Simulated assay, not measured.
Amino acid sequence: MSGVAEGLAEPGPEPVSIGRMTLYPEPESVSRARRWFRKFLDPYGLTCSLDDCVLMVSELVTNAILYGEAEDAWRVRVEWWRVGEALRVDVHNPGFPAHVRMRQPAADEAHGRGLCLVDELSDSWSAGPSPLGGTVVSFVLAGAWNV
């Protein structure tokens, strides 16, 4: 089971950027994020489930599009990092960090399970202020690579 912690400070190995994408805040960007993320990460031979990663990216991009807000035109930015044996994925939007919360939706509710899925599938996740401005929500999968 994972947990949420504020901020992105991580002791240990220095994160190495292995990819990023910038998306328009429109519904079509969710399927685009799934497709591109799978295409970009497939060659890395992850030992974790790429399907789980794609699902979590899809949920976080959906949330970023739904809850991001800015007066001017804005984008959703997705970045992925190798941190030792772990994979970390960051999803940035111009919304307010205080608005990120995990809900406990009723069984008959159609929405509200995105962060619950991220919590179940990741080793950890965090939400806080983005260094780009706005909010960043991240997840980590430990042991994503054999070192």
Rank of each mutant, 00 (worst) to 15 (best):
E6W: 13
E6A: 15
E6D: 13
L8F: 08
A9I: 12
P11S: 13
G12S: 05
E14H: 04
E14R: 05
P15V: 05
P15C: 08
V16L: 12
S17C: 14
S17D: 11
G19M: 08
G19R: 07
R20M: 14
R20V: 07
R20W: 12
M21I: 12
T22Q: 15
T22A: 15
L23K: 02
L23W: 02
P25D: 08
P25E: 06
E26M: 11
E26I: 12
P27C: 00
E28D: 11
S31L: 07
S31Q: 08
R32M: 04
R32Y: 01
R32L: 09
A33R: 02
R35T: 07
F37A: 03
R38H: 08
F40S: 13
L41A: 10
L41I: 10
L41R: 02
L41S: 04
L41E: 03
Y44S: 06
L46C: 11
L46K: 05
T47H: 14
T47I: 13
T47M: 12
S49R: 15
D51K: 09
D51G: 10
D51W: 06
D51R: 11
D51Y: 02
D51T: 13
D52M: 11
C53T: 07
M56S: 09
V57Q: 00
S58A: 15
E59Y: 03
L60A: 08
V61P: 00
N63W: 04
N63E: 12
I65A: 05
I65D: 02
I65T: 03
I65G: 02
L66T: 05
G68W: 00
G68Y: 01
E69H: 11
D72T: 11
D72F: 07
D72M: 07
D72A: 13
A73E: 15
A73N: 11
W74E: 04
W74H: 08
R75G: 00
R75Q: 14
R75P: 00
V76Y: 03
V76R: 01
V76K: 02
E79L: 13
W80I: 06
W81I: 05
W81F: 15
W81K: 04
R82D: 08
R82V: 04
E85T: 12
R88Q: 14
R88E: 10
R88N: 05
R88S: 06
R88K: 14
V89F: 09
V89A: 06
V91A: 00
V91W: 02
V91D: 01
V91P: 00
P94E: 03
G95I: 01
G95A: 05
P97F: 04
A98Q: 15
H99C: 10
R101Y: 09
